[in-house]
Simulated assay, not measured.
Amino acid sequence: MRQVVIALIAGSLFGAGLAFSGMVDPTRVQGFLDLLGNWDPTLAFVMGGAMIPMAIAWLVQKRMTKPAADTHFNLPGTSMLDSKLAIGAVLFGIGWGIAGLCPGPAVADLALNPLPALIFVAAMVAGMAAERFAIK
């Protein structure tokens, strides 16, 4: 139960941050990606601002013996760039540029702009399902 409460708090905080920063508005994201047009630097400030609490979180994590809601840390390792990662990053970027949404803002947008967000989320879930069945 503790894990569910922590997940709800973290998700609510993340969603509130997305809404407060305007990142649930696809036109703001597309404005950031429009380098040769009417460029909107807001997303750069959001990403830069996110590095401060993340840096603090890494410092706190280094001093902890275990996480608050698990028995041990499950941190990803580092690996070299491979074709799967590069192709995935390119597909993510193309989809982000076209739709102006990525997974976090899309889910938050379900409450603010349901129909376009639902179309995106349905396509996202279909893509996740297709990846599960793809030959690895």
Rank of each mutant, 00 (worst) to 15 (best):
M1E: 11
M1G: 11
M1S: 12
Q3H: 07
Q3T: 09
Q3L: 07
V4P: 04
V5K: 02
I6N: 00
I6S: 02
I6C: 05
A7K: 01
L8H: 03
L8T: 04
S12M: 09
L13T: 08
L13K: 04
F14H: 03
G15S: 15
G15V: 05
G15Q: 01
A16P: 00
A16H: 04
S21V: 00
S21G: 12
S21P: 01
S21Q: 01
S21E: 02
S21I: 00
V24H: 02
V24A: 06
D25C: 01
D25S: 04
P26A: 06
R28Y: 03
G31Y: 05
G31H: 07
G31I: 02
L33N: 02
L36E: 13
G37W: 10
N38G: 08
D40S: 09
L43R: 02
A44E: 11
V46R: 03
M47V: 15
G48V: 10
I52A: 10
I52T: 11
A55G: 15
A57S: 15
W58N: 13
W58F: 12
V60N: 08
K62W: 09
K62Q: 13
K62N: 10
R63H: 09
T65D: 15
K66T: 13
K66G: 07
K66D: 14
K66P: 03
P67W: 09
A68F: 14
T71H: 13
T71I: 13
H72K: 13
H72D: 13
F73Y: 11
N74E: 14
L75K: 12
L75E: 14
L75M: 09
L75V: 14
L75Q: 11
P76R: 12
G77K: 08
G77E: 15
T78Y: 12
S79A: 13
M80G: 10
S83K: 12
K84V: 06
A89F: 10
V90Y: 08
F92L: 11
F92N: 08
G93S: 08
W96P: 00
W96E: 03
W96G: 01
G97M: 08
G97H: 06
G97L: 04
G97S: 11
A99F: 11
A99M: 07
A99E: 03
G100Y: 03
G100W: 01
L101E: 01
C102M: 12
C102K: 00
P103H: 02
P105F: 00
A106R: 00
A106E: 02
V107M: 07
A108F: 02
A108R: 00
D109L: 01
A111D: 04
A111L: 14
L112G: 10
L112D: 06
N113L: 03
P114L: 12
L115G: 04
P116M: 07
A117T: 02
F120V: 08
V121H: 02
A122I: 06
A122G: 05
A123R: 00
V125S: 07
V125Y: 07
A126Y: 14
G127H: 04
M128T: 07
A129G: 06
A130L: 09
K136H: 12
